[in-house]
Write a protein that binds this DNA or RNA. Structure first.
Lengths: 339, 339
DNA sequence: TTGTATGCGTTATCAT
DNA sequence: ATGATAACGCATACAA
């Protein structure tokens, strides 16, 4: 900018005033300055500006997995929203690892992001401290965090799983394998509750042997399914916690020589674009990815716009059971228990 | 930092020296400073540091689609590589839009990213200028750019498509629909060449009616396939340019009441995790996503490490035909033409 | 309307 | 070994 000022024979203050429209500058000087800007190819340095202004117009976004279609869909929506608002987004992938997440959030905070959207990982103890120390607005997405009282948008996980289980139970399934994620995050707890409640509502026992957990990766789903299928009285249906895990489930079923839905029914959390063009077409609990992304973005943008004092807002969205052909009726269906 | 210095009753220079290990400071002062840092909860401001140092330890990464599994896989690898190297990455999704891409690259440059990895979009005219002006290293990925002479890692697209086409031709297919991306980017040109060459090598005519192009989205693949299937002499096989487009292809086939592979064979570019657990299991050209990501990261990290003067390096990787069950033999197979 | 001067939080140079 | 100070590029309060 100094170069521009010199070339235009004005002061840097005048250049700044013109660029930011913060004061009126005479036509002559404006012309000279604009010419100089073009000649030099001047670009305002956003870093220096950030230091002075105390704002980077950048937000941080952390998700557990960038290869999980659910998160990519949501990330895509969030990106577009902040794009429109003139913000950049720094995306971090924590890979379901607690330490990675903490490091990345600190990194983002060091870089003075104006806000944070986080789909968290782990028990949240450190996250809680970080969020408390940071004086930037934080929006929790997909997964709540005990003790962190801030804006959040989540799914009604309990209800979603309850509905899916009720569907399977109505088809006549009595032994339903349930593959959950690591239990220390809220959705997993809520979903577990939905699982139990659906069974209890139907007068079915909750067999702990049918519940397995893994860390959301394909291999975890594979291993969990292998264990379930090795049970002496194996389940007639399996519900898997997310997309990578259900792919593991399908691979395990294939490797063990069974097929879906003939030998075993399968359903899972999270819908995906190809779910109704390949066989079996998986029955899924679809999350409203568009709404989740938009709401998360809106919550943060609202804070960024200055609304700092409003009490924390928690949005709970509804999932939708997408019934396809991966679940078969088993014997005589029981009476309806679905709400 | 000033607060820390005051609390420890030292100068800011000493604090900085201790933090960066740039000079030896006495044990007493070290202790006082470290105590003050803990008390105050001091964090070094990366923005101020960037301004002073002229480096942000952040790179920019732009891809056309974050919902395309090929790009998410590559992005994931790149993220991890820069994570290890202590860099942050700002990911931008251009959504196959030229203006969006140019805006985003400018945004990244304004924010003083230390380097750029771009899977470009459009004709690259502006990209060329931007890259020339920017004095940061740029690595092109997946798609080259006419006139931009810089590091790059791409696939041997011509060979990959040639092999895939030869495979289909060997199965007896003579009319093969070919759905390509927008023609102004290098891979599409090379792939088209591979398509033509394979046909010519087999003595087959190149029927322009069998070639359709779209902008890489599912809907484009859908429309293109609909057109191909409406031909009076419709193709017996279709090759689709990427994952979203082949999903469109499968939906079109379904909607028109045909099925794959019974009525029509399908193959496509880019492999994906679920390709061998759902039916039909698509025959694909798998790109070495791990290698692509690692090489792109390495090329940039090498420049970042100071190796600025080396001539541009262009890495060409090989694709791999993953033969599954989505393509059926048609009539009598012709003689082998595959290399 | 335009210019001067100061500070944002660092790092680095140079005295001491 | 430690401290005073300048500079990075920008925005702004205030003076002219």
């Amino acid at each position: 900018m100094l170069h521009v000022a010199e070339a235009a024979r004005v002061s840097v203050a005048t250049v700044s005033a013109l660029i930011n429209g913060t004061a009126t500058v005479s036509p002559e000087l404006s012309a000279r300055i604009e010419q100089a800007i073009r000649d030099i190819g001047y670009k305002r340095n956003a870093i220096a500006r950030s230091l002075k202004m105390g704002t980077t117009r950048t937000i941080g976004l952390t998700v557990p997995h960038i290869t999980n279609p659910f998160f990519t869909d949501v990330v895509s929506v969030i990106q577009q929203a902040f794009d429109r608002a003139g913000y950049a987004v720094m995306l971090c992938c924590t890979d379901e690892d607690l330490n990675t997440q903490d490091d990345q959030i600190r990194l983002l905070l060091d870089r003075m992001v104006d806000g944070l959207i986080v789909a968290r990982v782990g028990d949240g103890a450190i996250l809680k401290r970080i969020v408390a120390d940071a004086n930037v607005p934080v929006v929790l997405m997909d997964r709540l965090c005990e003790g962190v009282d801030t804006d959040a948008v989540v799914l009604d996980n309990q209800r979603a799983v309850f509905d899916a289980m009720s569907y399977l139970i109505n088809l006549g399934h009595r032994r339903i394998g349930y593959i959950t994620g690591t239990s220390d995050i809220s959705p997993m707890h809520d979903r577990m509750t939905g699982y139990r409640e659906a069974l209890q509502a139907a007068g079915l026992p909750v067999a702990e042997e049918l519940v397995r957990s893994g860390n959301f990766h394909e291999i975890d789903g594979y291993n969990a399914t292998m264990q379930l299928l090795s049970l002496h009285d194996r389940p007639s249906a399996i519900f898997s916690a997310n997309n990578p895990m259900v792919i593991g489930t399908m691979k395990a079923i294939r490797d063990i020589g069974l097929s879906c839905p003939e030998d075993i029914s399968v359903a899972c959390f999270d819908d995906f674009p190809w779910s109704d063009v390949f066989q079996p077409q998986l029955t899924t609990v679809a999350q409203p990815v568009q709404a989740i992304g938009e709401q998360a973005a809106n919550l943060l943008l609202d804070r960024l716009a200055g609304n700092r004092d409003a009490p924390p807002r928690k949005l709970v969205l509804k999932g939708r059971l997408m019934i396809r052909n991966s679940c078969r009726p088993l014997g005589a269906a029981v009476h309806s228990v679905s709400a």
